[in-house]
Nucleic acid binder design. Structure first.
Length: 215
DNA sequence: CTCCCGATAT
DNA sequence: ATATCAGGAG
């Protein structure tokens, strides 16, 4: 089957299976989303959602993060890991948003990438979920793993995978697509032992044989 | 390519 | 007790 046709089927099946697929991070403002997404680097959304309620009620806006005490913030986000980097990045991003962007989180990819701790995955997530801006496809570890297993890309670099996916997936679905793969990745196609026999995509999946050779 | 780090599964 | 998970910067 040709890749575009296969991609269409994958999307149709996943939409039927996960009609409510969406971001799993808790937030209520663009700044909260930015903070949560920076924290989610190399950390699960579940872990992030445990620390954000406390910091969201303590830091009410961009200015509060800009004047946050580094050590205090480090303690508050400790359990998400890489807390020295993340605390510095959050404060640095807040200061830059105030100085360069008039206190508003930028709504274009070029601008948001200027913020410390923000690369394409984080940029795509914030632009899409805060503003509905579709700049690309967020490629996190789930999107990368499933795209590779499904044969939608031969690349390993997330940025190249994003380019491959953008050619295959209709633009209106760029935002939704990631969350479909992520839901399926968490539930069925996990990193360690994918549950291929229970997978609704196994007939389309080149990796089925690989994981279950005899079948 | 290396460093940054805790949480969770096994 | 140890392997594996989970992005970005220099």
């Amino acid at each position: 089957m040709k890749l575009p046709a296969k991609t269409e089927k994958v999307i149709a099946l996943l939409k039927k299976e996960y009609p409510a697929a969406k971001i799993a991070l808790d937030f209520s403002t663009p700044m909260e989303l930015l903070v949560a997404t920076i924290l989610s680097a190399q950390s699960t959304d579940v872990t992030v959602n445990k620390v954000t309620p406390a910091i969201f009620s303590k830091y009410k806006n961009v200015h509060a993060y800009a004047r946050a005490d580094l050590k205090e913030l480090e303690q508050e986000i400790y359990s998400t890991g890489f807390y020295h980097n993340k605390a510095k990045n959050i404060i640095g991003a807040a200061k830059l948003i105030i100085e360069q962007y008039h206190g508003k989180i930028p709504a274009t990819m070029d601008e948001i990438l200027e913020l410390p701790g923000v690369a394409r995955k984080t940029g795509n997530i914030v632009l899409y979920n805060a503003y509905g801006v579709v700049a690309g496809i967020p490629v996190d570890t789930h999107v990368r793993r499933l795209s590779q297993r499904l044969g939608l890309t031969r690349n390993n670099d997330p940025e190249k995978i994003e380019q491959d996916l953008m050619k295959l997936v209709p633009r209106k679905l760029w935002g939704k697509f990631s969350y479909l793969l992520i839901d399926h990745g968490r539930k069925i196609c996990d990193a360690k032992k994918p549950k291929c026999p229970a997978c609704i995509l196994n007939k389309l999946c080149p990796s089925y044989k690989k994981f279950f050779p005899i079948r």
